[in-house]
Nucleic acid binder design. Structure first.
Lengths: 157, 157
DNA sequence: GCAGCGGCGTTAGTGTCCCTAACGATACGG
DNA sequence: CCGTATCGTTAGGGACACTAACGCCGCTGC
């Protein structure tokens, strides 16, 4: 076994070394696969990533206008409209005009919506479990922590 | 100090916990920022991610047909055409008909192309340095290793 | 009052990736 | 030869991130 650096020899034999060194490549590939996995799992129950994020934000932080929801979820106001249309049609949220400011809508989770959130949460928990299967709990934590640091560092660069 | 798990409390105060737990979210956000950073740096010298990947593959593994190049670089054959058009117009590669099979082209790096590759490599080294600035060498290695394991695991799932 | 600025929800459109479909040309196997 | 498969190429679809503009309303100041 001339395996130098054991676990560090990652992936593809016919990917050039210069390319393999690029963090953006590795993260990008992983992101793509994670997006696919989560997207497919959510699609199976007729949902979308943004549906989950919006429901979670409403459930954890309470009702909000669409604008504030957009800020909290990082779903663009333009895209949020369609998401809320879906959720409203399914009875998961309620869109009511704000009596204090007629420009705004007040978005509220319904009981059905909280139930839906629980469902989506379970689906995604399954995905996470599958995705992080090869990592033990400590490794999962370090992965999160390292990514978070890189992420935070880039967020204010 | 009620700081539980110290370094693990990552990022956004108004992101719901359920969402924060999703690896796909964290990886996705990071991927987006890395893509932006690398894309912008390459754009400043008039290049594209795929230009780099193609040049690197040719330089490391030698000439190839477009089809094999596509396999090696994971750039789709359809998209590869435009990339090779660019590189050929700039004199970085040579597109010659394969005498052994008139369907194929043989793609070869020129000297100018190797020089260009060096330039792009430096640009990206700078990006990597900037991006991974908050991590020490050991942490960078573990980040790569962990991502590679997740990635490899998803690749054959 | 009312005029102007700015935030609200909404519609439409842009650009970039990743990916598929089909086509003419060429190779290859029966 | 005839059918099938592969090559480079063109065109387009679909998801995602993002911008522009519009009509509506609130707010401030004159």
């Amino acid at each position: 076994m001339e395996s130098d650096d054991a676990g560090l020899r990652h992936s593809d034999a016919d990917t050039p070394e210069r390319v393999r060194r690029q963090l953006s490549r590795l993260v990008g590939m992983t992101a793509g696969q994670l997006r696919k996995a989560a997207g497919a799992a959510l699609a199976e129950v007729g949902a979308h990533k943004d549906h989950f994020v919006v429901l979670a934000s409403l459930a954890e932080f309470g009702p909000a206008s669409q604008s504030r929801l957009s800020d909290r979820t990082r779903v663009y106001r333009s895209d949020l409209v369609a998401v809320l249309n879906d959720l409203e049609a399914a009875g998961h949220i309620q869109r009511a005009p704000d009596p204090e400011d007629k420009r705004r809508n007040v978005i509220t989770v319904t009981a059905k919506g909280r139930c839906r959130l629980g469902e989506l949460d379970e689906v995604l928990a399954g995905v996470n479990e599958h995705v992080m299967a090869p990592l033990d709990p400590a490794e999962r934590d370090t992965l999160f922590a390292l990514l978070a640091r890189v992420n935070a560092h880039l967020a204010d660069g």
